[in-house]
Design a protein around this nucleic acid. Structure first.
Lengths: 199, 199
DNA sequence: TTTAAATAGTTAACACTGTTAACAAAAGTA
DNA sequence: TACTTTTGTTAACAGTGTTAACTATTTAAA
């Protein structure tokens, strides 16, 4: 049945164009400026067509959260691959994470935008799990323990918290610290983390 | 001129009632549910009266950010006063900060709500400075250096990042880690921070 | 090939939102 | 009493998310 197949293909194409339009608006005007009417206009369809593909506006934004974690996961993998020791890997990943938070700022803000209605559903987003497992894996190598036990999860949460805290505080508090210093703060924190990892 | 004085007093009272109404809505329905019409209804005035006291909705929300940092600053001071050594003080403050982020969740989300239009103005909010100086002061005692130099600022940023990162990640990722564990993660990070403070 | 069903797409409306202009009423001043 | 300032109002503008009702168009069945 190439008829149904063609239909599904076209349907997916429209869905893609919706996300593409949304992304364009997000990058140009910020994610607060995203409106379904604007999206409809960009894709050249009327308003309710968007609702044929996404249950709500939040569903569209949630898609971005997924994409964001997907991008972040890939970045972590690529960065990790470029280094050999676990310590160097983790440090490089931290820097890459930090850089991601700013260069892909629109994504990052969606991924951690507090007050977003996605908060409850965020546990079901398995892209987060992907990211987590990559980092957990690296930490595991650093500790030299075989099983993923409670301690490693604890260390992972600590590590992630340091990264996210630094990113978001610098995001809110723009230019509160000079740019050269931001990296030093990050390295300071990460090095402290690594040194204390076996306590 | 007790006439003008009375006027100013009443004006301040209305302004207060606006903030009070807003706070009620925030605590009951979350800060996304705050609308000027709702506020107007609660205070018993018509809509444009609100605009006589606040330039915009954002200005009202910004007031909350200030109040939040004010509350946080007080909490930090009180917590600090209950301990004697700088190390204990800092640890207690970290726990108190963490607890604040959750018990006063609505405030905290406003204070760090990314994507809020207040981001640019946030530097001008001197309540943040108050909070900063309290923590900086404690860290200073821990390092035993007299002047507030770059290193101390760096350490402060690291410390704050750890706290905020932990708070907000746990906020988004509700119940991803069991509650008992959250405190252990925090203590783990803070102890690592303190141990490394002279490096 | 004609008819019935499913799908794609439309317009129009509902119930909201922030914000502001135009106007009325009350209070203070001369 | 007449004038000005302040206080408060209604009504509207432009926008939002969402949905109901309707119309073509295309597909499947008779």
């Amino acid at each position: 049945m190439p008829i149904q197949e063609k239909r599904l293909k076209q349907k997916a194409a429209v869905k893609d164009s919706i996300l593409c339009a949304a992304r364009t608006i997000v990058l140009k005007e910020g994610w607060q400026a995203v409106s379904i009417r604007k999206i409809a206009e960009v894709i050249g369809y009327s308003l309710p067509v968007v609702y044929k593909h996404f249950e709500s506006k939040d569903a569209i934004l949630e898609e971005f959260v997924k994409q964001g974690f997907e991008l972040l996961s890939e970045l972590m993998l690529d960065t990790k691959a470029k280094e050999t020791t676990a310590e160097k890997q983790l440090t490089a990943m931290a820097l890459a994470y930090f850089e991601f938070a700013f260069s892909k700022r629109e994504y990052y803000q969606m991924m951690f935008g507090l007050g977003m209605p996605t908060c409850e559903r965020v546990n079901q987003i398995n892209e987060i799990g992907k990211f987590s497992s990559i980092v957990v894996n690296t930490i595991q190598n650093l500790i030299n323990e075989e099983e993923v036990n409670e301690k490693i999860i604890l260390k992972f949460h600590t590590f992630w918290s340091i990264l996210h805290g630094l990113s978001s505080i610098n995001m809110v508090n723009i230019a509160a610290t000079p740019n050269e210093m931001q990296q030093r703060v990050l390295l300071d924190a990460v090095q402290g983390f690594i040194k204390n990892i076996n306590n």
